[in-house]
Simulated scan of single mutants.
Amino acid sequence: MYKVFIDNSVIQFLDSSEKVPSGKYDLVWNSLENDLSTLLDQFDFTASSVCLLVIYEDFELAFNRVFHAYEFMDAAGGIVKCDRRYLFIERHGVWDIPKGKLDSNEQPWEAAVREIEEECGIKGPEIDHFLGVTFHTYSYMGRLTIKKNWWYALNYSGSMEVTPQEEESITQAIWIDKSEWKMIRENTYDSIVEVLEMAKDF
């Protein structure tokens, strides 16, 4: 299953071969029976929180039809662990995980390491394993944009001194114990909560 976060709402994409999970959906939309290009027009996502389920046979086809009016962007980042503590940043008053846009011809894992180094001022975090992907939408320079984030778990053994990248509006970077993740969950984005779930056993 893939999830796309739109403000406080979520659209879940489910393969037609999978069982529909239990839960309350505001709309279940079968891509074989309905015009996906009109799905987003039916809801005001800024006014309320909704949960939609799109059942597909071809994910890319269904995804592109739903978000046909959006520009696509790839980004990568990750959760860094050092001596049982984890690295988080605060940006625009909200807790986040270091991440950023892929450069031209850059692989996601390369971008994840580079962005973490740039945003937090550390050197040499190493990929442990791939966590998964999330999607979220936002407005970038007045254009509707959907961002695909590639997430990784990384190990780090260097200095824990950090330098937040101020030009990226990062006001602080901190190392915290997993027992303190509740603080992050209480003031972050739904897509980041999803990543915390991916990394709960890391």
Rank of each mutant, 00 (worst) to 15 (best):
S49Q: 14
I79Q: 03
G78W: 00
D83E: 15
L52D: 08
N64D: 12
L53G: 05
F63M: 03
E71N: 13
L53T: 02
Q42S: 12
D58W: 01
K81Y: 02
V50S: 01
R65Y: 06
Y70T: 00
T38F: 05
I79Y: 02
D74R: 10
E60M: 11
C82S: 15
D83S: 14
C82A: 15
E57P: 01
G77R: 04
E60P: 05
F63P: 04
A75W: 05
R85F: 08
C51S: 14
F67C: 02
L87G: 08
F43L: 06
E60Q: 12
Y70E: 00
A69P: 09
A76E: 12
F45P: 06
E57G: 14
N64Q: 07
F72P: 00
V50L: 03
R84K: 13
Y86E: 03
L87F: 06
A62I: 06
Y70V: 00
S49K: 15
A76H: 11
R85V: 14
H68P: 01
N64L: 07
A69K: 15
E71K: 14
L61W: 07
F72R: 11
L61S: 13
V54R: 09
R84E: 14
F45D: 06
L40G: 04
D74T: 07
S48G: 09
A62S: 15
V80R: 03
L52E: 08
F63E: 03
F72M: 04
V50M: 02
K81N: 07
V66P: 04
G78I: 00
T46D: 09
L40R: 08
H68F: 12
A62F: 07
D74S: 13
A62M: 05
D74E: 15
D58C: 05
Y70H: 01
H68N: 10
Y86L: 03
A62Q: 07
E90R: 14
C51E: 14
V80K: 01
E60W: 08
C82Y: 07
R65S: 06
T46P: 01
D41C: 06
D41N: 15
N64T: 08
R84V: 10
V54S: 11
L87V: 11
D41W: 02
A75N: 09
Q42D: 11
D58Y: 05
L39A: 11
